[in-house]
Design a protein around this nucleic acid. Structure first.
Lengths: 156, 156
DNA sequence: ATTATAAGTGCAAATATATACATTTTCTGA
DNA sequence: TCAGAAAATGTATATATTTGCACTTATAAT
């Protein structure tokens, strides 16, 4: 009913849900018995410093100030899920994981003893994978998906 | 010309200017002799995780990811002092530090989230820094000096 | 209580950003 | 080198967000 309570609801909804648009948030608010127009929402969000950012996996998401990146810390599960990103550079593959997971994932790769993979070096949240010479990036990625038997190995 | 150099320019412009819209940024890019369409820019920004937020007082502003991290004040002495040497090899940069300091320095580098730096792997007294493809060694070194020049007064 | 001032809101229109699709460019494997 | 696949890009358009304006509601001082 009052403006203050609306702001509080907005904060809660943004914190607890992956909201992708103001229309989206509007629906949730209505579901909670509190409604206003999208224009008002735009003004509310500005006042609270809530803005739309990227969730680290291609999508958009509204997030509270200071929580910009925490979205990507949501998924420490099996080793497969522990791969949060991969980047090719200089013929090497950098694999990102949540903090502390790098060595667990690297061990799994090492144990596969695949010819294509010359070796790995694990830090805390990053693994450097050194492929053997003259192999395509794709071959390595295919190799990894075999090891993890999963489709969640997305590049970029 | 190349995509990589465009991304680098974008990063630089966003870091050094108060950019309020993609059209805005587009102008600056053109002024720097590098042009593309707004659509491409939208995709570039998404890939780099650069999104529009609030500058704290009314206005909008594009900002680099994690630009509100204040918790990088963990290092004894300045990070600059903690770098005792650097060597280029195979397109990679090896950074030496006093024993035990590698990870602290690497964290600082990671947090800067510079596009030019694909990632780092830290051991105990050595950091392996992997640059993105098609960048000069000089670009990387300049990048590093920027990172360590901004916050050198860490000790509190 | 009454008037003056400020704050909040909806509506419609203006801005701004993202995306589908077609095309061009770059990359890969033979 | 060449054909096929994948990535990058522009164009046009769809989607999303912001804002000017008029109106309503709250606030404060007499």
């Amino acid at each position: 009913m009052t403006r203050a309570s609306r702001l509080i609801l907005i904060e809660k909804l943004v914190r607890e849900n992956a909201i992708t648009s103001q229309e989206d948030l509007l629906m949730l608010m209505e579901g909670a018995g509190m409604k206003c127009t999208q224009a008002t929402l735009s003004r509310d969000l500005r006042q609270m410093g809530i803005s739309r950012g990227f969730d680290g996996r291609g999508g958009y998401r509204y997030m509270l100030p200071g929580k910009e990146d925490k979205a990507s810390e949501l998924l420490p599960g099996t080793e497969t899920e522990a791969i949060t990103g991969m980047t090719w550079a200089k013929g090497l593959l950098l694999i990102n994981t949540p903090p502390g997971y790098a060595s667990a994932v690297a061990i799994k790769i090492d144990r596969a003893r695949r010819y294509e993979i010359a070796g790995t070096v694990a830090g805390d949240d990053t693994i450097l994978l050194i492929p053997r010479d003259n192999l395509s990036n794709e071959a390595i990625e295919e190799c990894l998906s075999t090891i993890f038997q999963s489709n969640t190995l997305t590049k970029k």
